[in-house]
Amino acid sequence: MRFFRESKQFIIVMFILYVVLKILFISGMASPYIQQIIQYAIIIALASLGLNIIYGFTGQFSLGHAAFYGIGAYTSAYITKMFGIDNIFSYIPVLMLCGIISGLIGFLIGIPILKLKDDFLAIATLGFGTLVRVFFDNSDKITDVLGGSRGFVGIPKITNLDLVLVVFAFIVIITRYMIKSRFGLFWRCIKEDELAATSIGINTANMKLMAFTYGCMLAGCGGAFYANLYSFLHPSNFDILRSIDFLIIVIIGGMGNITGTIYASIIWVGFIEGLRIVLPSEIMDLRWVVIPVLLICIMMWRPYGIMVKKPR
């Protein structure tokens, strides 16, 4: 419990944020659409945190993060719909189960593919992402409930602000503790120089696998929240572009920077969804023209992320 006391400041900030948002929600100043976006931003922050563990802290480049997000989402959607779960207390075990299943699949897939490096790891994770996408597209052949390429409909709406914020704060505290712990140190060592890390006795294979599993678990939790927030899932929500979304958030927020990731997620979701309200659709199409240019520029001038000046 020591680390809960140590992150007193963070808990106070989250509590103030919670009170402010709750007032906004109850007083009706935030329309249901805005409420949904705020929750969505927190969910995206949760999943991006997972990618930041994998890529930002441990340096394992993954282009398949959306697959784990999708696995969490479909698991949660299936369980809540099949067992008719509709209150928060019976939802929490489901949430944990979704995280565990995502983490387990990440663990199993990580054993072989984490042997690969850099761009081959990228193409392998991309391949896994496509496989999962193909699986979702054909999922109606397994059970009709999953919907296949028609999409998964009728998921109970359970996610609410209280739950999302509490779980998010809890996970951020745990993650911060993990980063400060021995394991976090090992992860950062592997990122800096894998060979040197091996030479000082770090079991790099296990540590990479641990970071990957943990990151996938967070993605799974985020996905579960997502499914029960929007009550509709479509395989196209979990394709390569979504993985690139997460990647961009991690890069903007800075690799190995938890606070940066949270800010970047809020900015990102606000940017995407906010612009949808303000701008007409012709200009909205330009969004994906501007974003890649931005990405290339960041890579040229700030290759370690906007909020991190240079590697420590």
């Binding site: 850099d118 023209v289 890649p292 990405l295 290339i296 890579m299």
Partner: peptide, 10 residues
């Protein structure tokens, strides 16, 4: 690699 992905998306 990220730049390559960016060029592709662009």
């Amino acid at each position: 690699l990220i730049t390559a992905v960016g060029v592709s998306l662009f």
